[in-house]
């Protein structure tokens, strides 16, 4: 008898197990999002901080002229201004405000114009910094969203295509750009193909040096795999010219011919080859071509 209760327990365990990775991803996304949002808010809070600072500087100047009593007054004012900021941003910004006030202490000087200039200079880079930080956080947010991930992958794909075109003379039409729901997969494929392109190039240069038919055969096979039947045909032909006794080379040659819509020539070639070699593989291929199994 089947113990359904026991089985249900195992099922529950299995379910929990399969949900753990999802849960981890979910939680980590939430954590990342909260961190990002904290950063974002802290950056927007920085502008009021600067505003309070400029006030402070001005007040300081007044302080320099005025009495100590009033300075106490100002300091209480300062506290009032910064109070709402503190509640939001916590220690982080607090530290910043204190260090900044120290800086300004050093640049204090009697001239009002000079002060203003410094203030302007100080403000501008600050705004720049905050805005750029905002942008980057926005970007990070975008990356989390699916759609833009896709765009980015498409970019990579296009780039790699461009690269291919520049590095290779042979007309290779492998990856047609088309809207796809799985850009990730595609990217992997293009990388692989780029590798084999490089492989081929390297092997061709090696072949040019030593004329080894094994190398040209390899190139023919690779081109065949890549769907570049013209080049596969060429290299099979080259291989045959060096050594006309390599079975694989004949097979690739015939297969490429079929792919290039020269079925009759493929059959003729195979028959010739079979006549003197009695190759079993060639016979099988011939049969497959004739029966239309190989197209």
């Amino acid at each position: 008898m089947l113990n359904t209760r026991e089985l249900e327990k195992r099922w529950l365990k299995y379910k929990i197990k399969t949900y753990i990775p999802h849960a981890i991803i979910f939680v980590s996304i939430i954590v990342i999002m909260t961190i990002i949002s904290i950063f974002a808010t802290s950056n927007t809070e920085k502008t009021p901080v600067i505003a309070t600072k400029t006030e402070k500087h001005e007040k300081r100047k007044i302080v320099a002229i005025q009495s100590l009593q009033k300075e106490q007054n100002v300091s209480t004012q300062k506290e009032i201004v910064t109070a709402p900021v503190q509640t939001n941003i916590q220690q982080n910004t607090q530290v910043q405000t204190t260090t900044l006030t120290e800086d300004t202490k050093l640049t204090l000087s009697p001239s009002m114009n000079f002060m203003r200039r410094i203030q302007n200079e100080e403000q501008q880079p600050y705004y720049k910094v905050t805005s750029s930080v905002k942008k980057s956080t926005k970007k990070r947010k975008k990356v989390v969203q699916q759609a833009t991930v896709e765009e980015e992958y498409m970019d990579i794909e296009q780039k790699s295509q461009v690269k291919k075109k520049t590095t290779n003379k042979a007309p290779i039409t492998i990856v047609k750009k088309e809207p796809t729901s799985k850009p990730y997969k595609k990217q992997i494929i293009t990388i692989e193909r780029r590798d084999s392109q490089n492989d081929i190039k390297e092997i061709i240069t090696r072949f040019k040096k030593n004329n080894n038919p094994a190398l040209s055969l390899f190139v023919a096979k690779k081109y065949y795999e890549l769907g570049n039947y013209e080049q596969a045909y060429n290299y099979a032909l080259i291989t045959n010219a060096i050594n006309n006794d390599i079975e694989d080379s004949w097979l690739i040659f015939a297969k490429s011919l079929v792919k290039l819509n020269k079925r009759d020539m493929a059959i003729k070639t195979l028959k010739e080859y079979i006549k003197y070699s009695h190759s079993g593989n060639a016979k099988i291929l011939l049969n497959d071509i004739q029966s239309g199994k190989f197209k």
Partner: peptide, 9 residues
Amino acid sequence: KLIEMAAIH
């Protein structure tokens, strides 16, 4: 759920 239970079984 039952398919999964059967698969476990």
